[in-house]
Every structure is written in structure tokens, then in C-alpha cells.
Design a protein around this nucleic acid. Sequence first.
DNA 1: TTGAAAGCGCTAACAG
DNA 2: CTGTTAGCGCTTTCAA
Lengths: 333, 333
Amino acid sequence: MKPSIKDVAHLAGVSLGTVSRVLNNNPKVKPENQQKVLRAIAQLGYHPNPFARSLPSNKTHMISIFLPLMSSEFYGYLFEGIDNELSNVWYDSSIYPVFSKRRLISYSNPNAFPYQSDGMLFVSLIPERLFEGGHVPTNKPVVLVDAFSDKYDSIYVDNVNGGYLAGKHLIEKPGEIYLISIGEERNVEFASGVFGKRRRGFERALEEAGMHLMNSHVFEIGENFWEALTVGRKILQKAILPVNIFAVCDTLAMGIVEAVKESGLKLGIDVRVIGFDDLKWSEKIGLTTVRQPIMEMGKKATTILLDRISRDTSPRHEVCFKPKLIVRKSTGR
Amino acid sequence: MKPSIKDVAHLAGVSLGTVSRVLNNNPKVKPENQQKVLRAIAQLGYHPNPFARSLPSNKTHMISIFLPLMSSEFYGYLFEGIDNELSNVWYDSSIYPVFSKRRLISYSNPNAFPYQSDGMLFVSLIPERLFEGGHVPTNKPVVLVDAFSDKYDSIYVDNVNGGYLAGKHLIEKPGEIYLISIGEERNVEFASGVFGKRRRGFERALEEAGMHLMNSHVFEIGENFWEALTVGRKILQKAILPVNIFAVCDTLAMGIVEAVKESGLKLGIDVRVIGFDDLKWSEKIGLTTVRQPIMEMGKKATTILLDRISRDTSPRHEVCFKPKLIVRKSTGR
DNA sequence: TTGAAAGCGCTAACAG
DNA sequence: CTGTTAGCGCTTTCAA
């Protein structure tokens, strides 16, 4: 059987209370006793049981991360930012993917496992759409990342402005304008709406220039390279050159770029492509893109969540990161 | 304050024990009392606290899933298989990514949070490489998926044979043979070795045919489309046609296919490409590949884990799925 | 600075 | 079938 705090107390020749105090770094323990306890702990290979611990204290030193799906580079970077921040304070995290009705139902229980953590990070998810009543069924701190709600602390990038920057950049170029976006209508509940915002900003830029995005020039597809490639081929087949294409994320942009390469047309001259995200490989393929500081967003959200956990009661935080246009040769310099 | 079992007992006019029995579907409760309790529960919006519950019972109705990283389609499908199976028995899961020394250290504590679950699924991870002592620091059931160890139940696909099938298929075709693999030397601890196995099987097929894989025809890269594309371009530049290329996963194969399309060469004639996985889009691009039943693996592993949790003590399970060669036009019919 | 004791919310054994 | 009671492993008063 695993040793318990009792065994440690026995071996160290002190009471339960003292052991507990050592465990919790309570300063008022005689150094001598502290040593005794520490030795006993080491000798027994004792580790406190986190569930037992959380019962009276109501703290777990854990946060729960909710996210819609898992196969996207974006979440890798975000998680890195989160994890770095957590490591400073000896917090750990568990991940809960939210993608099905069933999951959602189980997360509607305020005593569901994930809500036992000290705080929740909702990534690319909007509580209003997810839960009936419109709020996360917990009283513990909740922070949103890559999503916005006026009821929760929200950390995000200004997607509208990002789209606007892309638009501003493209309208200076000759040629017709295309938009490749990601369909968010089905599964609205699991969507964050960022792609719609990028589109909105993009269209605004066009309108300001007296231009207009034609319906036939808009394509809504799934978030994967292959669909983008396919749509890219289709566009290039009948397009009147030059054309300018905004893809709402780099993965899609990469698909378009490949379609261009296949076609033998000149990227940056015949066809201009601009993406969104600035993922690691975007520089290598010379992709013009709108950079969002993914890791920083993760870091910032975590800091705020951690503050909330330690009773920061200041009014709602809202951090809106500025996106940055990175011009590379896919839009011809 | 959240209602506790006490409140329910009061309201229902029964004792704690009876409420607990209702909660645990204990058949020996008078139907009348059961109704009373159920009504009280509904009225109060009561939900049992899972931590408190697990303390005396030592059960959580949770499993922990450990995996190396998150941005790969493979894990999406695997998770789907797992989750479906769990839903039948009202189990839930949390995910713990393992990718840094720090994470590993925190998971070396037998009382770490993840080990409080009823069972552990280790995906693409080999405990022997991960932990000193060579075993997962828990006495609870542990099942490996997409990885093999003779100390744990292991569910995997026969990667060696998969590589072999790819080899057999390619040696029938005229032209030189190339291999695109994924470097596993750095970060060995977080690698499962599947790519090495695929390569081994592949080379065996060549050897049986009296052929030999030249060192200059082997490329080890990272697991992403872009690197494959780059290496594909490089190969095609100086290759003597026709060439036959085995990429150890479909994502890499897709990169090679794109390099072919760019070059204007004929896929399936000048250049033959074969992948591994048979991801959703592989059929659409006509990629010959070795199919592994990802979802079924997840499902099977979960069933076994669930059995173990309900005290299945039979000897170690080992399920080796047979890979299947899917011939499409990327290898010319 | 410490030990004793109550209690976190629940399960499970026991007697009736 | 039910209530009572003793824990599960820990934190946290409260006196001393």
C-alpha cells in the first residue's frame, strides 16, 4: 500500500498536523522537525494524494484546458505558451477536447471532473454557444483564449483588423480578389467565429476602396490543405490573371500556393496569396501572412487565469493582441 | 454552496446511506425511497463530487490518455475510437501530453494527478524509454496503443509488415527506390519507433529481392508536409526516372506528390509514391498507401483497458492489427 | 510551535 | 431494505 501522511508522521515522530504543515510550506515549523519530516518523506517515497488534499482545501494546483479539436499546429504553439507559464508556479494541466454533444452534456455538470481544477481555459470556444444558460457551469475562474465573450476574461488577436490588413495589402495589387475561408455554419457551437471576423475585416478594406468581393469568388471549405489545394486548382483554371487570394489561415494558403506551383504560374506575379497565422514554415515558403502571437496569447491567458485563481477580483480583463502584416514574396514583395 | 449528499438525505427524509445507494444503483432500495431521493436530487440540482467519491471507493470513472504531441490527424481518429468506446460505459477521459522533461518529471510521481484515473492509455509512447525503472509509476491498468512493450498490453499495427508490403509493391516497378522517413534519434524518449519499423520491413522486402536501399536515397525529416515537399523537389531534380518513393506516412507522401505535380512529371509513371496510414484525403489524391485501422486500434485498446479496470487478470494482451496495401494511381494502378 | 480533533463529501461494512 | 458508523487522506482550526 502507498504510504499516507500517517505513516510519515509515525516515522518522523511528529503529529499529522506537523507533516501537513511541512507539506504546505507553513513557516512555523521548527527546522529540526521539518528535517525529520522531510527525511521520513524521502525514506518512504511518500507523495500526497491530490484528491484527498483537494477535499478540505478545495485546491488542486491544476487547470483544465478545453479545446475543440486537436489536429492543428495552432494548438501546439498555444499549449507551449500555456505550459511554460504554468511551469513557473508548479501548476499542471489536463486537456479536455470538446467536440461532441455527448462531451458537452457531461461538461454541463458543475461537478464534472474538469471543473474540479482550480481554473479553466477555454480555447477557441464560446461558452454562450456551448452551454444552455450561456455560461460555464462553475464558479471557478474561466478565461477565454482565441475567443471573445463580454462575460469572461478574453485573450485574443484582433481578427477583424487582421483581415483588414490583408485586404489593405491586396487592394493595392492589380487583379481580381478571392477569399478562401472556413465554413463555420455547421457545428456553430464548436466554432469560435474567428474566420468570420477575418473575412469581415477583409471585406471592410475592400469596401473602403470601393471594391466588392464577388460571391463567386468566395469559397468556404474545411480546415485542411487538401481542400485548399483543390479549390486553388479550380480557381486558377478559369481565373483571369492576375488574381489575389486571401486564405484565412496559413494551412489553406499553403494549399493555394501549391496549386499555383502546379499550374506553372508565377507566385507573387500571376497569383498573389496571403495567409493568416505565420506558422513556422510560412517564412520558408515565402508566404505573405498576418502574424498572430500564438504563444504569447497562451502565456497571457495563463497569467491572468493564475491571477484569478489567487483571488484577483479586478474587473474583466480583455487583451486584444495586434496582428501584424508580414510581407513576403507570395504577394510579390 | 453546492448541495451535498447530506442535503439530499435531509430533503428526502432518508439517511446518507440510502442516498449513496441510490447514487450507486444499488438494487436494494425500496422503490418509494428511491423516488424520494431522485426527486430531492433533481430539486436541489445535486451532483456528487467525484473527488470525494473516489476517496473511499478508489474509482473515478475516468481514464487518462498520454500522448506525445497533438497536431496530427492520426490522434484525432484514434481519439474518436477511444471516445466512442468510453461513451458506452459512461467513462470519461482526460488527455495529458508528454513532450518535455518537465512533464515527465511530474509524471514520475505515482500520485500525480493523471494516475488517479482508473486506467491509463499510453499512445505512441514507450514506458521503458520514458521512466527510470522502465515502468509507469502506477499499479493501475496501463494499455499501450500504437506502441509495443512486452511488459504491457499492447495494441498496434504490424508496422514492419506494413513497410514490407510497401517494399514488395515497389520492387515490382522499374526504377530506383527512395525512402522518406522521420528522424527519431533526437527525442528518442518521446518516440515510439514505428517509423523505424516501417523502414525495416521495407528494406527487408528489397533485400529479399536482391535489392539494396542506397544511403543517398534515404532522407530523414520532420513529420510535416513542407519538409517532404522540399525533399521531394530535391530528389526529382537529379533523379534518373522513373523513381519509386516510399514515405513512411501519408502526410510526407502528400509532400512528395506535390513535388511531382510541381515538376510536371507524371505521377504513377515517372514517379511512383506510396504512403502509410490511409488518411481521409489519401483516396482523393489517389495515393497508394498502407492502411492501418486507426479507430479500431483506439477502440480495441479501450475495451481491453476497461476490462482490466473491471479486474480482468488474464495474461498480457497483445493485439497486432494487419496493415493492408491499398493500391491507387500514385503507383500506376 | 505543536498535537488533538473536527470535517471535506462520500462509500462501505455492519447490525438490525 | 435501512440507518449508523467508521473511515478514505488530507487541511485547518483551536488550545495548549
